[in-house]
Design a protein around this nucleic acid. Structure first.
Lengths: 133, 133
DNA sequence: CGGGATCCTGTCTGATACTG
DNA sequence: CAGTATCAGACAGGATCCCG
């Protein structure tokens, strides 16, 4: 067994396998709050409250909870200053910044196709109305 | 008012605003099932059952539900053949393919940082154990 | 085969209150 | 200021049954 951990078992790395590690990580990251936080952090370092203000609509609880998950996965780095009142800084790790590239892409996509999507929705609604009766 | 709808009101296009259209669309797309479906579709055309087999772990219900949402937003195109038994094909629209680019990035990211994330998790768990008592 | 409808469970989420 | 705990409602998600 020479190539012990050199090449990871492919099953673990396949996002499409329900029980793979890749799927687990993907599921944790692929939700709006995590992605918005990553997007907002960017290359900056933000405090908890700043983050809360930037990601409009997120609750105190979801912010801590999501940050904890991202910290656990090494996507964000958390720095605690032993001051009073306490101060906690959040910034992306290298992995986080890499992920941010694609997240930016998603945000840009949303802006880019906003009008087309709105139009598609109208067409869909119209077709639905025709369909019934 | 000459520039009536030429430039969309910026608030609608800002993913960070809780009540914006952009946020609404972003939230609909930024979830694991939607992203996995988009990733699987790629440039191919797949039938319902094929899709179900490819996206391991998705339930019949979530697949239809998510597909309906994506169809509504004009991300996937649905073709129904009036045969018996019925045949329904799904493929990405242009908007869908554009989104897929970034989704692929996320999948690639997961594979790329799999080991680092696993290590980060171990460190996090270790720190947690130290912390208590 | 594709999909709608229903029921039921668990997780997500927000509001509120409390600690260091 | 940052974070935890708790409670209650909303919603995601699975299982099952029935229809064209």
């Amino acid at each position: 067994m020479e190539t012990k951990q050199v090449q990871r078992v492919s099953e673990d790395a396949d996002v499409l396998r329900a029980d793979s590690l890749a799927r687990e990580i993907f599921s944790e990251v692929a939700n709006k709050w995590a992605l918005l936080i990553i997007n907002v952090l960017g290359t900056r370092t933000l405090r908890f409250t700043e983050l809360r203000n930037e990601v409009d609509g997120i609750s105190h609880k979801m912010l801590t909870q999501t940050l904890r998950g991202l910290e656990r996965d090494g996507v964000v780095h958390r720095t605690v200053y032993a001051t009073v009142p306490p101060r906690v800084d959040y910034r992306l790790t290298e992995a986080g910044e890499a992920l941010r590239e694609t997240v930016n892409g998603m945000c840009a996509w949303t802006r880019r196709y906003l009008d087309e999507i709105e139009a598609a929705r109208r067409r869909f609604a119209a077709r639905e109305r025709d369909a019934e009766q």
